[in-house]
């Protein structure tokens, strides 16, 4: 797997010119600085540790593919609607270019949906991808999530949704806003049929996604320190013209305010999900 397909391909040291300057060859990608504790981490160490800082437990954002790989049992994920991709339906200026750029990250859309096994338990899994237009919800995002819920309802399956979104995708105008209602309807039908829905909030979960399916889970988990908001901190600061308290709108903050069930570290995430699935009577053969 090409983990760095979405990174800028070369830095100065990697260029031919750099080599001729006779400096040691150290590709930038080998190291990554933790934004929280400023430790320089070996990228491979950080990745092996599920994209979590080995020193301070800071959770880096994770792309959709990596997260699916982390949660689904090996070779069990069957993707739904992989070919459903966004188009510039409203002819919005600049949107085609934005989509093209976003696709260079390797992701095709802001959400990956499918079914898989988790410790042998059949589960529908949707993972939003913060590396694709900040996971924003467009028509295709809403459609894929809705279809995943409808599939889970038809097959009486549990569903796990990992959310990450800057909000609705404004380049799709009112049609993106309507996805909030559409997905909520599918969540409600899944719920009314007695099926389990677990939400995992990841950084950042904001706007129209927070105000729809992210907050609809029977059980809502969140990764440490992730942003959970309806209005983003900058919008609030502009409105009230005050600095916000430091831990405002973090996972820990919304836990304290009573809006989520638990903050779970990434290394415990899959085992926690499996435990919850079992507690709801779902079982499966472990491979």
């Amino acid at each position: 797997m090409d983990l760095f397909a979405f990174r800028k391909p070369k830095n100065e040291l990697e260029s031919d010119e750099g080599e001729s300057k006779n400096v040691p060859f150290v590709p930038e990608e080998m190291w990554i600085k933790c934004p929280k504790c400023n430790t320089m981490l070996l990228t491979t160490d950080m990745e092996e540790n599920l994209h979590v800082c080995t020193k301070c437990n800071h959770h880096f954002r994770m792309n959709g593919r990596d997260r699916v790989e982390m949660l689904a049992d090996k070779d069990t994920f069957i993707e739904f609607d992989a070919d459903l991709v966004s188009h510039n339906i409203l002819d919005f200026p600049g949107y085609d270019q934005k989509l093209e750029k976003a696709r260079k990250t390797g992701a095709k859309e802001s959400v990956i949906c499918g079914e898989c096994k988790m410790n042998g338990i059949d589960t529908v899994l949707c993972v939003m991808d913060p590396t694709f237009m900040m996971g924003s919800m467009g028509v295709v995002t809403g459609e894929k999530i809705t279809r995943a819920f409808e599939y889970a309802t038809e097959n009486s399956m549990p569903i796990v949704v990992c959310t990450a979104a800057g909000g609705a995708r404004m380049q799709e105008g009112i049609l993106s806003l309507m996805q909030m209602a559409k997905t909520s309807g599918a969540v409600k039908r899944h719920s009314d049929a007695g099926n389990l829905y677990i939400t995992v909030l990841t950084d950042p979960t904001t706007g129209g996604v927070t105000a729809s399916f992210a907050m609809d889970g029977d059980i809502i988990l969140a990764e440490p320190d992730c942003l959970v908001a309806f209005a983003g901190p900058r919008v609030i600061e502009q409105t009230i013209r005050q600095k916000l308290p430091k831990d405002f709108q973090t996972a820990e903050f919304v836990l304290q305010k009573g809006f989520i069930d638990s903050v779970v570290s990434r290394n415990n995430l899959k085992s926690t999900l499996v435990k919850l699935l079992k507690l709801h009577g779902y079982s499966g053969e472990e491979a």
Partner: peptide, 13 residues
Amino acid sequence: AYPGIGAEERGQG
């Protein structure tokens, strides 16, 4: 919807 501290604390989303 109002974007403010109290609104967020009380679960606007």
